[in-house]
Write a protein that binds this DNA or RNA. Structure first.
Lengths: 341, 341
DNA sequence: TTGAAAGCGCTAACAG
DNA sequence: CTGTTAGCGCTTTCAA
């Protein structure tokens, strides 16, 4: 049975119908009598028929696939995003194909309009700016496209308001005045991987402090590489400079975690002497008792999918730029009293 | 020009030849006169012809694509592996499609023989045991398959000798006798994600100590969750138990890094009072001055690809089980003198 | 070295 | 509700 060579014709013969009828059953058309339907299904079963995807794609011109281009996979943000996108796509019988831009070579291959990622019905690009990615900023293939986590005037975009998130963090810390520091991540220019989110977060943070009448001195912005000990270096820098009560805003939880670590090793009671905020609400942030800013990633993913499907249906609809609002997650690291951990 | 609707027929007409000739040019057949070849190429150029991948796949039955199923993407091991595989595949005009098993839902979808990953000419599976992955251990689609980083008697496999790696680490540490500990990562049974590498590393390590006449007491094996603070917990445990000179073998660099961190915070001179070994040789291991065990990941990836291509050519060739040997990378964390960092 | 012709497996008009 | 028919774009014999 089923050597993979059973075609719709075999099924039709076996069921005593014509191929198009089998096709109708296969594609769930309503106008098939219950009787023939079961007969066809039985034939499919006994012959072990497996539809030939290549033929279907060829014939219909649709792959039922959406390509998702992103910098990497493995961080919490992307895993949650992918799952959200995946789940939503499945509701419409679509599959997601993942294309993490792990190396320069891959990027170069994706400049070819015939490359694998463009063999899809639509394109989702997360955290990457087409202007930096492709020569002339033009996506090689002419596919319906939605950008996630990055703004661009020429595409449908789904973003989170990072400025607002930073503002929320700033507002929150400003309620408990202290010498305040921000730990930033180096974002190189002209890199494909520069979405500017960290810059935005800092900007909002500064604004909040300004509005609260506690402007952040420029020298209190510590910029570090996003490396295996960036956060620790920043923490040491801060503690060298300042002894009294401190507020620290780290532009992502990963950084905040390292800062927290360093603080704890110095027996500084987090939440009292030092208050610390992160950004992202990583799953372990709660365990760390880390105050942070939560992004509605699942909602963004689902929205992006819906938007893409709409764009696929109506290529000429006007552009949508959806902005999601982040939320404050207040925990021990900015409350009084308990130590964080 | 080139609305994506230009076919090989248009090109043929424009060049004054017949479609099959265009096809011959497209596929680099030798028996085409230089004159017609250039004429065809010019036609392709001016019309902006882009070959229709779907049609080609349909016609030839080949996708020129290999699917790579792995637990995740983003760790150094997988990034290096993917790049190696990618590069080797490109030499043979193949593309790699990545399928990280990020969620249970994805796994379930991949149980369907019609799922996207099986729409390929071959399958590479890294670090995942088909027996745990699929019901009955049978890969849903009947594709040429090579397993990487995991052994299985029924498939071509490419592995690294983790037992040997652990042995090398053990031998190395045994040269400087001290109270010795091993930090293990919890590997749950019946999980798709249990490849057993950590177990193998520990086994080799124990054997080396045994052979050196310094058997490792069972209670000196510290098992931790692979979480954000597993290494630190282990380090504290070790330091609570023991004061004198210590040898620590962490079953991966990530863990070793956290152990090292905790040690440094206690001002324990790494390489003197405490000697520490990791496993994997992460890119930052050298910066940390961490002694570790290096895996020939690039060689493994390239070999796996070659093996897969052979299997695709000759489905009936006998199974290959290639085992690569790891190498010791000795650095400051196990040398005398300098502190690690 | 090139042309003619057939057909891969499936779907989508259209007709009945 | 079901059958007839045509053809998607490309490759691959086979013949010239």
């Amino acid at each position: 049975m089923g050597q993979g060579k059973v075609t719709i014709l075999d099924v039709a013969k076996h069921a005593g119908v014509v191929p198009s009828t089998v096709s109708r059953v296969l594609n769930g058309y309503p106008d098939v009598s219950e009787e023939t339907r079961t007969r066809v299904l039985k034939a499919i079963e006994t012959l072990g028929y497996k539809p030939n995807r290549a033929a279907r794609v060829f014939r219909t011109g649709r792959t039922q696939t959406v390509s998702l281009i992103l910098p990497m996979v493995g961080t919490d943000f992307y895993i949650r995003l992918i799952n959200a996108i995946d789940g939503e796509l499945a509701r419409y019988d679509y599959d997601a194909a993942l294309f993490p831009l792990l190396s320069q070579r891959r990027l170069e291959r994706y400049r070819d309009p015939g490359a694998l990622p463009y063999h899809a019905d639509g394109l989702l690009i997360s955290s990457l700016n087409p202007d930096h990615l492709f020569p002339g900023g033009k996506i090689p293939a002419d596919l319906p496209t939605v950008l996630i986590d990055i703004y661009h005037p020429a595409y449908d975009t789904v973003t989170v308001d990072n400025v607002k998130g930073g503002y929320l963090a700033g507002e929150h810390l400003a309620e408990r005045p202290a010498e305040t520091f921000a730990v930033m991540v180096e974002e190189r220019f002209n890199t494909p991987f520069a979405s500017g989110v960290f810059r935005d977060r800092l900007q909002g943070f500064k604004q909040a402090l300004l509005d609260a009448g506690q402007p952040l001195p420029e020298e209190n912005v510590i910029t570090v590489e996003f490396s295996w000990d960036g956060g620790r270096i920043a923490a040491r820098e801060i503690l060298n400079r300042c002894r009294g009560p401190i507020n620290v805003f780290a532009s992502c939880d990963l950084l905040a975690r390292d800062v927290m670590d360093e603080l704890r090793h110095r027996d500084l009671p987090i939440g009292r002497e030092v208050r610390l905020m992160g950004f992202d609400d990583q799953p372990w942030a709660e365990d760390c008792n880390l105050s942070t800013v939560r992004q509605p990633i699942e909602a963004m993913g689902a929205f992006a999918v819906k938007l893409l499907l709409k764009r696929m249906k109506e290529p000429d609809r006007k552009l949508t730029h959806k902005v999601f609002e982040p939320q404050l997650a207040v925990r021990g690291s900015t409350k009084g009293g308990e130590s964080g951990g």
